[in-house]
């Protein structure tokens, strides 16, 4: 069995792990590192519940190998909160009731975070396009869009 030792940074903390070639990144995060905020919804690259930031870009961690993350910087939903304070996106989801069952929420918030990094005043269409790879079976998306708009307003007030 092909084993590899990899080093990666997750939410600012360095980690080292010895993994099989075929281990998927989502399993490394959930099972080895016990960061179970990253969800597995479909396992077929469709739903986006497993979305994380991979060197700053939102990607589906069920479709990346753990070995590909060697030397990379990852952010999962657990890394959004800073100093016991919710991030703008998290607060937006809280204020605007951007979730129901919560299954899609980690992926939605990671995608929303990446969107606002690139564009701090996205239009509704740009928000809907950005989250088009994240499926939600509960909310109908309306409040998710509002949550990201809320976060955009808050982010702009902080960094005008």
């Amino acid at each position: 069995m092909a084993m590899h030792t990899i080093k990666l940074t997750v939410n600012g903390e360095p980690h080292e792990a010895t993994v099989e070639s075929r281990l998927l990144l989502v399993h490394l995060l959930r099972e080895n590192l016990r960061l179970t905020g990253t969800h597995i919804g479909c396992d077929t690259t469709h739903c986006g519940a497993c979305t994380i930031l991979f060197d700053g870009q939102p990607v589906k961690s069920c479709t990346v190998l753990a070995v590909q993350a060697d030397g990379r910087q990852l952010i999962t939903v657990e890394g959004l909160e800073k100093d016991n304070k919710l991030s703008a996106i998290q607060d937006g989801f809280y204020q605007e009731h951007g979730l129901q069952c919560g299954y899609c929420t980690p992926g939605m918030m990671i995608t929303g975070t990446a969107l606002l990094e690139r564009n701090n005043s996205p239009s509704e269409l740009e928000i809907r396009e950005a989250i088009s790879g994240n499926l939600c079976r509960c909310t109908g998306y309306v409040n998710i869009v509002k949550a990201i708009q809320h976060a955009a307003r808050a982010t702009k007030q902080e960094t005008p």
Partner: peptide, 9 residues
């Protein structure tokens, strides 16, 4: 092509 997340890879 696919969706924005897939297009990042």
């Amino acid at each position: 092509i696919a969706d924005p997340l897939v297009r990042n890879m």
